[in-house]
Design a binder for these strands. Sequence first.
DNA 1: GTCTATAGAGGGATAGAC
DNA 2: GTCTATCCCTCTATAGAC
Lengths: 215, 215
Amino acid sequence: MAKRLLSFANPVQSVNVSAVTSPLVWEHVQPAAARRLLTGAIDAFAERGFQATTTRDIASRAGMSPAALYVHYPSKERLLFEISLYGHQAALAVLQEAGDRPSPTERLRSMVSSFTAWHAEHHTIARVVQYELAALTPEHFAEVATIRRAISAQIEQVLADGVRDGSFTVEDLPGTTLAVLSLSIDVARWYTPHRTKPEALGSLYGDLALRMVQA
Amino acid sequence: MAKRLLSFANPVQSVNVSAVTSPLVWEHVQPAAARRLLTGAIDAFAERGFQATTTRDIASRAGMSPAALYVHYPSKERLLFEISLYGHQAALAVLQEAGDRPSPTERLRSMVSSFTAWHAEHHTIARVVQYELAALTPEHFAEVATIRRAISAQIEQVLADGVRDGSFTVEDLPGTTLAVLSLSIDVARWYTPHRTKPEALGSLYGDLALRMVQA
DNA sequence: GTCTATAGAGGGATAGAC
DNA sequence: GTCTATCCCTCTATAGAC
């Protein structure tokens, strides 16, 4: 019997972060010790959630004592905020780059495809971005909420453009915007690297989004 | 300026459980004190997550001292398990009842519509069901995972039936199954009662699912 | 900038009275 | 079956040496 794929049907209880967050993407975080703490925190938060993660766990993933953490970050919450802020910014940037197409049809396909692939490729960061908002301070939350509004506006705009030029048939614009976003966002909940390649998933979801607007 | 609706764009940091979980649905939980603890725990877990919820919080929502909790439940995790198990059973039952239609097209519409409306109507329980799996013991997790496989199988089956009789055009059956499930499940993440009625949301999502399979 | 040691607070669960 | 009191543990964060 073939090994069953992980999915909604066969969920993992704690996310398998066998592919530990690559430090290469985070070269702008200096010094290296701060970067090791950050990537360790991403993996830990994605695996267990913010509340269940201890500073000891983060520090030990970075090969340090718990106290060393506080040289680089003033609190556990601050570590979460820096991950969440950077993650939100990266997700918005992906959407904006993909939105550089003339026709609404190709623009929507490209945006959903890239946004979905990003959630799969960076599923650890994406989990923190999408599911750990409640652990942020009100001030930090307000800051990422601004970026979330910009992300939502990107999708709503391309749908509105498509409706206006007759490419799309959409009866409920805000509702359909949320549904399209849900498709990509929920990937962060269930995705594991062993299932599908991010690009293939993005391609499928791009097609599905076009069907949803009857392109 | 109109009050902005809550959504992905305007997320709430902690879920507004202004409509506290109705005790009416839980009459089978006896005695009443056990039921008050259970509904209090649902609200607390949905609002803050399992890890951030204290037994003192649950007990005080039920109007009791922390110690009284242990007369009715042996641990905080056991409370989570009973909520999660009942919630999974209820979600599966909704799907099965809605699947009582001859044609794949009407069956898929009905299933997605009901499953979505359930996630909206019971968004507090649904949040616990969908987002607190990691806090279950391995044994308890295995038990709810069985139900999750049955839920997934229900959707996959109706899609397969529609493909076979020519009603649907689906290129990637497991991928599309996951996408359809994602649509409904993600509702538990963002839904608040002030936005849309569960039935209206279900109706929209039923239509969107049919478009996704090109019915 | 990293360590060991620990302060200070809070949480899960239990003891024992009523 | 509920209470008050509390044990015992773990956690975040700090102190101070090197």
